[in-house]
Amino acid sequence: MNLFRFAGDILHLLSILVLLLKIHATKSCAGISLKTQELYLAVFITRYLDLFWNFHSLYNSVFKVVYIGTTSMIVWYMRRHRNVKLTYDRDHDTFRYLFLVAPCAVLSLLINARYNLFEILWTFSIYLEAVAILPQLVLLQRTKNVDNLTGNYVFLLGLYRAFYILNWVYRFATEPGYSAWLVWISGLIQTGLYLDFFYYYVQAWKQSKKLQLPS
């Protein structure tokens, strides 16, 4: 465990909490993609299947339970809460699950470290996490005016990924024999997806203006 990895995990948790609190406090999920949230839930469930038999550390186990729990709550709010579900922007959140899930499923069958069910599901979760933000980015693009909390949510998520890259660089430099190509490449692609958003987020912040994405 190094500071970059720890910062990454905390930022990830923070991003989820920002979103959950926003929904809870405003009773609105306007601008939030349910597709992205459900994809993240699928990511967490397929990756953390080993929760019960593959104990690594209390730290990891607590985070796994918290990520699954908080993301489930967000999905529950958006689907079931009597007021929140009315604010869901389903007309703009039209990204097809299949476009993301199918290629990731095929890729995880073709490229994996070991050919067994749990290894393949784990690999699938790595690939799916890389692209799960796409429905959210498309929704932001469509609605143009991004409210502050939604913008901060996406920014914190991107920052979490950036810190994971620093963590890999640090581990590569300090741990002999450490290499993780599958995770690195997926992670680089995932972080790359945020670059465009980052650019506009920083611009808006510098000019202390409301975040607006171009068409």
């Binding site: 796994k64 470290a113 994971y164 290499s179 993780a180 995770v183």
Partner: peptide, 10 residues
Amino acid sequence: AQSNLLKDEL
């Protein structure tokens, strides 16, 4: 061993 090494991250 490699895949165990990967799985110490979240």
